[in-house]
């Protein structure tokens, strides 16, 4: 298993390197630059800024410099948010997104898994139908609609929760709910279909024949096998949710990392594009390796080859 993990890590590093290279050259291919504004800045100022950020050098040289700095762990400085370095932006903003994302994933798991299981054992009955409707709703409603609706009803009309910032625990309620809604629905659906699969298997029938209670049957015998698709989904879900959601952060004015992804691209903030991309890629690769390991823990039949 150790050898396998090492191999996966090596593959992961290669993937990240390819991501770095592709992103670097692709972002330089898109037209425009970081210093574009409605008002033209003078050629002199433009030249001074290009020189300051090393953008006056040929691309291969910029690429080489970037890699050299990267090996030292230095992601460079933002060209748009003057005076801020990328490491600082990520270390100050990622924890905010991660806390929010972590809480919503936890909520998605705690709510989604039982919901899916309950739907499966009550297949075709009222409970199943209600859960399916909720889950479909959760997947179909775009997050900006949900956020605005939540804000309007619970923030403005009922005045139960604050509508911006993350000052206290109360501030988390609306954004966490908004963030968790989609994954909860998705997990419930995944859980329902895989649970149905598992419930049809012989060993479950045997367990039933032995007269085990539904609860033990479900959560002791069926869950272990039924949860595998959810674990697969959990890897990328963790990576994407922890790094923040552009929409939720924008609407609830949360200083997270999500808005930096989009902002850096539309603003052509090259170092920030690179920094956030590398960060996300590393996180996804790590999560995938962890998921592979988790597989082995949950289901010993799985061969890691």
């Amino acid at each position: 298993m150790g050898k396998y993990i090492l191999k996966r890590i090596a593959m992961g590093l290669t993937t990240i390197f390819i991501v770095i290279t592709l992103t670097f050259f692709l972002m330089n291919l898109i037209p425009g630059g970081p210093f574009m504004a409605e008002k033209a800045i003078s050629a002199q100022a433009q030249a001074a800024m290009n020189e300051k950020y090393g953008l006056d050098k040929p691309l291969p040289v910029q690429y080489k410099n970037y890699l050299v700095n990267l090996t030292k762990g230095d992601l460079g400085v933002s060209v748009k948010q003057r005076g801020r370095d990328i490491n600082g932006i990520i270390t100050s903003k990622f924890p905010v997104s991660a806390r929010l994302g972590g809480a919503s994933i936890l909520m998605a798991l705690i709510v989604g898994i039982p919901l899916g299981s309950i739907a499966a054992i009550n297949r075709g009955k009222l409970a199943d139908n209600i859960i399916i409707v909720i889950a479909t709703f959760g997947i179909a409603v775009p997050s900006f609609v949900l956020c605005t609706l939540l804000m309007y009803i619970f923030g403005v009309k009922l005045n139960l929760f604050p509508t911006y910032g993350l000052g206290s625990l109360k501030h988390y309620v609306l954004p966490v709910f908004a963030l968790a809604f989609y994954p909860t629905a998705y997990i419930a659906r995944l859980m329902r279909s895989s649970m149905l699969d598992v419930l049809g298997q012989d060993y479950i029938r045997t367990a039933k024949a032995k007269g085990l209670s539904t609860f033990v049957l479900l959560f002791k015998h069926a869950l272990r096998n039924a949860i595998l698709p959810v674990v697969t989904y959990l890897g990328p879900l963790l990576a994407y949710t922890l790094t923040g959601s552009f929409v939720v952060e924008k609407i609830f004015t949360i200083p997270g990392l999500g808005s930096e992804f989009i902002g850096s691209i539309s603003g052509r903030d090259y170092p920030l594009i690179m920094g956030t991309t590398i960060f996300l890629a590393t996180l996804i690769v790590t999560m995938n390796v962890l998921v592979d390991i988790a597989y082995k823990l949950i289901d010993p039949r799985i061969k890691l080859q």
Partner: peptide, 18 residues
């Protein structure tokens, strides 16, 4: 543990008290 760690490492981060 992972969730707790992630929360903990946010101590000095962006959000602050009003």
């Amino acid at each position: 543990v992972a969730a707790t760690l992630l929360s903990a490492c946010g101590g000095g981060g962006g959000a602050s008290k009003d």
